[in-house]
Computed example of a mutant assay.
Amino acid sequence: MDFSAARHNMVESQVRTNKVRDPLVLEAMETLPREKFVPERLQALAYMDEDISLGGGRVLMEPMVLARLLQAADVKAEDIALVVGCASGYEAAALSKLAATVVALESDKALADEAAHTLAALGLDTVAVVEGALPAGYPEQGPYDVIFINGGVAEVPAALRDQLADGGRMVYVALGARGGGQAVLANKQDGVLSQVDLFDAACPLLHDFANAPKFTF
């Protein structure tokens, strides 16, 4: 399979056509070998326009949803970013093309080890993979200019709000009680978090958040 052609087609048919204009986001999606972040048996599916299940409730996020969330986060070159639920590391890798430093948090040791191996093999040394409970975030490296929650959440855990820097942006998929979801951009100003619904999006629930302390708007 010609992965380079598949990658280009993904950007042209799934990403550009869905209101993604940020050249850095487009470049990240065009250059990252998405097939390296899925098991070998799934590589032929790496560029389809759906989430790809990685097991344990983790997914490789649908390209369009990821690209639009990254664009909405307005990532700056000097930013420090946190990925919550890094899974195989692809979303953290994409963020590393935009931000100065990325902390990739994962609670599943096997996935964390896999992500660290893949990122190192690709020379993406500005990403640090750490293990820990997802709802707790990773305060040791905070506060963060950008927090990317890599999966669906019903409500945002309080610890993540606290780890967002003033002026920071958080992007995620908020799941409704009756199904469906909305991509959300939350901004923090003067200690207050406000949110804007961006577009309809579906993403599996991050099960780690089921019993986490919640913050509601």
Rank of each mutant, 00 (worst) to 15 (best):
E91L: 01
E91I: 02
E91W: 06
E91G: 10
A93C: 10
A93F: 09
A93H: 02
L95H: 00
L95C: 00
K97S: 04
L98N: 05
A104F: 03
L105T: 00
E106T: 01
S107Q: 03
A112S: 13
A112G: 04
A112E: 14
E114V: 03
E114I: 10
A115H: 12
T118H: 10
A120F: 10
A120T: 13
G123K: 04
G123T: 13
L124R: 09
V129C: 02
E131W: 02
G132H: 06
A133W: 10
A133H: 14
L134A: 15
L134Y: 08
P135T: 00
A136N: 14
A136L: 10
Y138V: 02
E140T: 11
Q141P: 00
V146I: 13
I147K: 10
N150G: 13
N150M: 04
N150V: 03
G152N: 07
G152V: 06
A154K: 11
E155C: 05
E155Y: 04
V156R: 05
V156Q: 11
A158Y: 08
A159V: 06
R161F: 15
R161E: 15
Q163D: 03
D166A: 00
G167K: 04
G168P: 08
G168N: 09
R169T: 14
V171C: 12
Y172T: 06
Y172W: 11
